[in-house]
């Protein structure tokens, strides 16, 4: 008969196997991330409890318990960040709308951040007292902002690419309709609608360019959150302009086809 410990090990191995396979897809990686998130929360709860125990009784044993559970919480946070980065990379990789060059940039950023996590994990392992713990914690906060900045910048650039491709499609449709509208019975009316569409996507292009400029400034140190927010504002204006341009385009299309 298998002993309980052996049985646990076997079950554990059986559970780990499909997890590794599923982590090869974005949806699988997302599940792994959720699990890491749960583990991180549990580690933080254990740290909170250790702190309460230490506050109640400042013994050396309780002090050591705070250090150990802090280390466990930091490691769990690193595991969570690692799982999250893996998911981000796979999601982008599976997205057909993201161009290859941008995918490469994101892959490199993720790899660089994963390498930082490996270094930090080693530093957490080496922590022996509260001073070292505080130092590593502060370092992790800095690295966390770097990770957030990298992902925000890349996300913004993916959005810029998508908005740009929508603007290009509208631009192509507009040019084609304009060519066909010449000589048609309601040429004047159609051209007026197409002029509106043209104005819309020109405005969108200006805002998309501004958004890109802002997103490229999403770096730490700097003011990444503000830059990201600015980029988003430009992109929202661009989206509204594209929707307005699309509406004019559709009206022009119907006029040309005799349905307007």
């Amino acid at each position: 008969m298998l002993k309980p410990a052996m049985l646990t090990l076997v079950i554990g191995l059986l559970l780990i196997q499909p997890m590794n396979i599923s982590a090869q897809t974005a949806s699988g990686a997302k599940q792994v991330w959720y699990q890491a998130k749960e583990a991180s929360r549990a580690a933080q709860e254990a740290l909170r409890k250790a702190n309460l125990d230490y506050a109640a009784s400042k013994t050396e044993a309780n002090n050591q318990k705070v250090i150990d559970s802090s280390k466990a919480a930091l490691k769990a946070a690193l595991d969570e960040a690692e799982a999250w980065l893996n998911w981000v990379e796979l999601e982008v990789k599976e997205n057909p709308e993201v161009p290859t060059d941008l995918k490469d940039v994101i892959r490199q950023d993720v790899a660089s951040n994963l390498a930082k996590i490996v270094v930090l994990r080693g530093e957490v392992d080496a922590v022996q007292n509260r001073i070292q713990l505080a130092t590593v914690f502060l370092k992790m906060v800095g690295k966390y902002l770097e990770v957030v900045s990298d992902v925000a910048r890349n996300t913004g650039l993916v959005w810029v690419h998508m908005a740009d491709s929508y603007a290009s499609t509208i631009e192509e449709y507009e040019a084609e309709l304009r060519g066909k509208a010449v000589g048609s019975t309601n040429e004047k009316e159609i051209l007026a609608k197409l002029d509106e569409a043209k104005g819309g996507f020109a405005k969108a292009r200006t805002n998309i360019d501004s958004a890109e400029a802002e997103y490229l400034q999403v770096k730490f140190p700097g003011n990444p959150i503000l830059r990201f927010s600015n980029g988003n504002q430009y992109l929202r204006i661009a989206r509204n302009s594209l929707l307005a341009a699309h509406s004019s385009l559709r009206q022009a299309y119907r006029l040309l086809m005799g349905g307007g």
């Binding site: 991180s40 580690a43 740290l47 702190n51 919480a73 960040a81 509260r130 001073i131 906060v141």
Partner: peptide
């Protein structure tokens, strides 16, 4: 707020003793 690695996830209060090592 849900991410475990949030900045205030481990506050300075958790590191009490820093001032009196």
């Amino acid at each position: 707020d849900q991410i475990g690695l949030k900045i205030d996830g481990l506050s300075f209060e958790d590191l009490e003793g820093l001032s009196s090592p």
